[in-house]
Simulated assay, not measured.
Amino acid sequence: MLQLAIAVLIVFIASIVRGFSGFGLSLLAITGLSLIYAPADIVPSIFMLELVASINLLPSIWKDIHWRSLAPLTLGCLIATPLGVWCLAHISPAPMQLALAIFVLVSTAILGWGFSLKNIPGIAGSTAVGAACGLSNGAFGIAGPPLILFYFSSPAGAAAGRASIVAFFLATDTIGLANQYHEGLLNWDVVMRAAFYLPAMLFGVWTGARSFKGVSEEKFRKVVLILLAIMAVIIGVKAVLALNV
């Protein structure tokens, strides 16, 4: 019972971040829940929650979406997602958790260093970023870091970046769920777990969205980066210990 309560709390906190910034639900929820469950047991459920979260936020961000960049990003994601899902379905939990920890730490460091671009990349660059999103989304259930780097380091602006990330997640999570179904990862346990987390997710997204205009985005993102780094270290240590058993 305590384990379930902790899981719901993790989803709620991750959903507040998602509602505020447009990203972070998968990254925070899967990072936190991986301390309790194997990635293959939680990723499909979080994908379902991400899909609902994007649909819930879509009406409020529609006018700010940067549509021109979404097509090549989605194409790259479509190409690379099956490989990521295959990794999720066929690689044991400990290596997956270690890979997740390294991925989160590297992404957090890059974001923390303030990486920036002068222009939004063209078709080839955008497709490559989309492929990175698809690979990590399929394998870890986390498409965020490459996409966050893409938009928030570009001249698109915070509002356009947040809106475009939400729209992209709607596409990537649909693609990811289709591939997970093909790999046999979707079942009634997954659906029931997602339904159990759903109220916490909806309330968290609503809370985060209400605070979007009232809190300094820079300060909030710094807190998120610190939290991600701590979680990644914990997961990495846990994975290394499991590999040595």
Rank of each mutant, 00 (worst) to 15 (best):
V224A: 05
L28S: 07
Q180M: 14
L186I: 12
T207I: 14
L186T: 01
A38E: 15
P72N: 09
I226H: 00
I55H: 06
V215F: 13
I42W: 01
Y197W: 13
N119C: 07
N137L: 11
I175R: 05
I102H: 06
G138T: 06
S154K: 05
K238R: 15
S216R: 13
S21T: 15
V190G: 02
V233H: 09
L88M: 04
V205P: 12
S211Q: 13
P146M: 05
A89K: 08
L49S: 08
K213C: 03
F150H: 07
P93H: 06
I123E: 05
A101H: 02
S107H: 01
I142S: 00
A242M: 15
G141D: 03
H90T: 13
A209I: 07
P146D: 02
P121W: 13
L185A: 00
K222I: 12
I175N: 07
I6M: 05
T127M: 15
I10T: 00
G138R: 10
Y151R: 01
V205C: 03
V17F: 00
G214P: 02
A94P: 14
G214D: 12
V166F: 14
A143F: 05
F196Y: 13
K118Q: 12
G130A: 06
V43M: 02
M1P: 15
P44C: 05
L78N: 04
C133E: 05
L202W: 15
G176Y: 08
L177I: 12
A94Q: 15
A40T: 10
I235W: 04
K219E: 07
S45T: 05
I120H: 06
I65S: 04
W113M: 15
D189M: 12
I123Y: 07
F47R: 03
K213D: 15
A178P: 15
G134K: 11
I165W: 02
L33H: 02
S126C: 11
N244A: 14
F140K: 02
A143R: 07
D173A: 12
N137T: 11
L243N: 07
P39E: 00
I102L: 15
F203E: 00
T172P: 12
Y197M: 14
S154D: 08
K213V: 02
I6C: 01
G141E: 06
Y181C: 03
M231W: 05
Q180I: 04
A124Q: 05
D173C: 10
A29V: 08
A80L: 11
S45K: 13
F152P: 01
A128R: 10
M1L: 14
F168E: 05
N137C: 08
V245A: 14
G204W: 02
T174S: 11
S211L: 15
G144T: 14
W86R: 07
L111A: 04
